[in-house]
Design a protein around this nucleic acid. Structure first.
Length: 423
DNA sequence: TCTGGGGTCCTAGGACCC
DNA sequence: TCTGGGGTCCTAGGACCC
């Protein structure tokens, strides 16, 4: 049996844990650059605010219902996630951290009442972190995800925790479950299936897996088999190494000057190199892209990207910035209002196993660069993220994103520790 | 004025090998 | 008249996830 533990409205719950005044009120958390609403409390969902609604489109609704809006605070969410996962890991030896707010727990061989065990887990998480969770328990991951959704809504007297095996008529439940809400199926496949007469999840469960494979591929076939109780998606206890990494941002204001873009792309390349070093990876190539706003039809549109291959794998900030900037120079065209840029490292390999270039500089130079990078990383870890950086990162700050309503870094900065008033 | 930022897997087709 | 049988690697595009 597999349990899926999912935090309720995770970002909102993190904010509420340190700001109880948000309790009971409609709350929305914004994406980077204060663009869209990407996390919602139950109260704001009831007001009809959809996932991904652009913030600037609903000023009246916000005023009318006193909706609380916050910029996203990823330092806080990442730290709260770490705490939740730490508590969760006490309850099983085999756990897969699936996302910032979800984990699969393998409960095979647990003899006791799994609903009661789930309730204990939920209570402990809430007490230890302040975060409310819902738990679905079932024989496969797909059914555990499904049971989790039902537990969130609450069906047939089950709320917060639902053990699939305790339901008396699962087929009746599946008949009322929309296909597009099944894990791994979205509206694209959902509407294709509907056209073929597969209207609900019970219909999908009854469909011949071989027929599904012919018409949709092996991914959907696995889902059908999982709905029938046959595990096809294994637990991944050890996170596999990243295959690519992307650093990109929308700008706080549109940029027209190459200088401003150079600063942004330098920061993205530098951040990418840091990610490589913390994960012990090297990049074989770098891709730089820039584009104008896809929504603004009043100005000329332009987008372009360029990929540069390396002679040998690298995780060196100076080299990545150098290549990123030379790529940028090749695709930059004056006269456009740029909205976003990014640095993509699409081919990653483990560091330490690199094939060296036949025409490489002295190997001693590579070693020196490596020492320089660990020195910089150490200083920045002790004294704060951007204590030492490359000069080109400082060319301009015009591109920096908007974050006008961000809460303090309650748990990761001494300066932002919450104060408690004892009366 | 204003619209996020990351990822993965699968498949088909082209180019090549013996 | 008639033209094999087995592979690999790479890329682009499409589908999905949080």
């Amino acid at each position: 049996m597999i349990a899926l533990v999912d935090c309720n409205n995770f970002y909102v719950s993190c904010e509420r844990a340190f700001n109880p005044k948000l309790e009971g009120k409609p709350v929305g958390i914004l994406s980077n650059n204060d663009g869209c609403i990407i996390a919602r409390s139950e109260e704001i969902k009831k007001l009809g605010v959809a996932m991904g609604t652009p913030y600037f489109k609903i000023p009246d609704l916000i005023k009318q219902h006193n909706i609380q809006i916050l910029s996203s605070n990823y330092a806080l969410y990442a730290d709260m996630s770490r705490r939740v996962m730490q508590v969760l890991s006490r309850f099983t030896p085999t756990m897969e951290i699936y996302s910032i707010d979800e984990s699969f727990l393998d409960l095979s061989g647990f003899a006791q009442d799994l609903t009661a065990y789930g309730s204990t887990i939920a209570k402990t998480i809430k007490q230890g972190t302040g975060i409310p969770v819902s738990i679905g328990i079932a024989p496969t991951k797909t059914l555990a995800k499904l049971a989790n959704k039902l537990a969130k809504k609450g069906i047939a007297g089950h709320r917060q925790v639902l053990d699939w095996n305790t339901l008396t008529d699962t087929n009746a439940v599946l008949q009322h479950f929309p296909v597009k809400d099944v894990w791994g199926i979205s509206s694209g496949w959902g509407s294709r299936l509907a056209k073929l007469g597969i209207a609900n999840t019970y219909d999908l469960k009854q469909t011949d897996p071989k027929w599904i494979r012919q018409h949709f591929g092996v991914v959907l076939e696995r889902i059908v088999r999982e709905l029938n109780g046959t595990p096809c998606i294994p637990m991944e206890m050890i996170a596999p190494a990243r295959k690519q990494t992307l650093t990109s941002r929308s700008f706080g204001e549109r940029l027209t000057q190459l200088l401003d873009l150079r600063a942004a792309v330098s920061v993205f390349a530098s951040r990418s190199a840091e990610k490589l070093r913390t994960q012990n990876l090297c990049a074989l190539s770098i891709c730089v892209f820039i584009h104008t706003s896809p929504f603004d039809s009043s100005k000329p549109a332009y987008s372009n990207a360029v990929t540069i291959r390396f002679d040998q794998p690298s995780q060196d900030t100076g080299w990545l910035i150098h290549c990123a900037l030379s790529g940028l120079a090749r695709i930059f065209k004056p006269g456009y209002h740029y909205q976003r840029a990014g640095v993509l490292l699409p081919d990653l390999v483990p560091s330490g196993t690199q094939q060296l270039s036949l025409f490489s500089d002295e190997p001693e130079m590579d070693a020196k660069h490596g020492q320089l990078m660990s020195m910089i990383d150490n200083i920045n870890r002790i004294h704060g993220r951007h204590t030492i950086r490359y000069a080109s990162e400082n060319l301009s700050a015009k591109w920096r994103m908007r974050q006008n309503m961000k809460s303090p870094a309650y748990t990761t900065s001494w300066a932002a520790l919450p104060a408690v008033n004892v009366i």
